[in-house]
Computed example of a mutant assay.
Amino acid sequence: MNAPARHESYVLDDGEKAVEVIEDTKIPNAATIKIVKQDHTLGNMLRAQLLAMPQVLFAGYKVPHPLHPYFIIKIQTDGTVTPQKILEQACTKLIGTMSSLETKFKREFSYKDVEGTAGGVTAATGEDPYGTTGGAWGRGGDYLDII
């Protein structure tokens, strides 16, 4: 009822900036960054990636309100690099990680075709590596078939 239209949650308006950087005047080498039209998914991944980097002293994020489609991330570094630069590096590493995950995911499913599987059961041995046929389900169908 009070929720905005779905497209307003992820499409930037004309002239709207995706990222706003606010320098922190009270804490050295720190910044507060507002990332618009994103949610916990990106916020948590960025926070985890930032905390894995040795130059980062603090990284945390919050979503101020569920109906407002943005999150705020606060970053403090050791001074060898700026918070903006370390955020760019974290984003680059995340893109590389996601690309690697996609490649591995596609490779695993291409093995399924190469190994001659049919419906999840290996044709040569008759074994199901995921346990989705027979067994406790009894009918040999997918687990969603019991609903």
Score class of each variant (00 low, 15 high):
Pro4Asp: 12
Ala5Asn: 15
Ala5Gln: 11
Ala5Leu: 13
Arg6Asp: 15
His7Gln: 15
Ser9Ala: 13
Leu12Glu: 11
Leu12Val: 09
Leu12Asn: 01
Asp13Phe: 10
Asp14Val: 02
Ala18Thr: 05
Ala18Lys: 11
Glu20Asp: 13
Val21Asn: 14
Glu23Asn: 13
Glu23Ile: 04
Thr25Ser: 15
Lys26Pro: 08
Thr32Phe: 04
Ile33Gly: 09
Lys34Asn: 05
Ile35Ser: 02
Asp39Glu: 03
Leu46Val: 02
Arg47Ile: 14
Leu50Gly: 14
Ala52Asp: 13
Met53Glu: 00
Pro54Arg: 00
Pro54Gln: 01
Val56Lys: 10
Val56Phe: 01
Phe58Arg: 03
Ala59Tyr: 01
Tyr61Arg: 08
Lys62Pro: 11
Pro64Tyr: 00
Pro64Arg: 01
His68Ser: 12
Pro69Phe: 09
Pro69Ser: 05
Pro69Leu: 11
Phe71Trp: 06
Ile72Ala: 15
Ile75Ser: 02
Asp78Gln: 11
Gly79Phe: 07
Gly79Ala: 10
Pro83Phe: 00
Pro83Thr: 02
Gln84His: 07
Gln84Gly: 07
Lys85Val: 12
Ile86Pro: 05
Gln89Arg: 08
Gln89Met: 12
Thr92Arg: 07
Thr92Pro: 01
Thr92Cys: 02
Lys93Thr: 11
Ile95Arg: 13
Gly96Arg: 04
Ser99Pro: 01
Ser99Lys: 10
Ser100Gln: 13
Ser100Phe: 05
Ser100Leu: 10
Ser100Thr: 06
Leu101Arg: 05
Leu101Tyr: 12
Glu102Met: 05
Lys104Tyr: 06
Lys104Arg: 11
Phe105Trp: 13
Phe105Tyr: 12
Lys106Ser: 12
Arg107Glu: 10
Glu108Met: 12
Lys112Glu: 15
Asp113Cys: 02
Asp113Pro: 00
Asp113Arg: 04
Asp113Phe: 03
Glu115Ser: 11
Ala118Gly: 13
Gly120Thr: 06
Val121Ile: 11
Val121Trp: 03
Thr122Cys: 07
Ala123Leu: 14
Ala124Met: 03
Ala124Glu: 11
Thr125Leu: 09
Gly126Gln: 06
Pro129Asn: 12
Thr133His: 10
Gly135Cys: 00
Gly135Leu: 01
Gly135Tyr: 00
Trp137Phe: 04
Gly141Thr: 00
Asp142Asn: 06
Tyr143Gly: 02
Asp145Pro: 04
Ile146Cys: 04
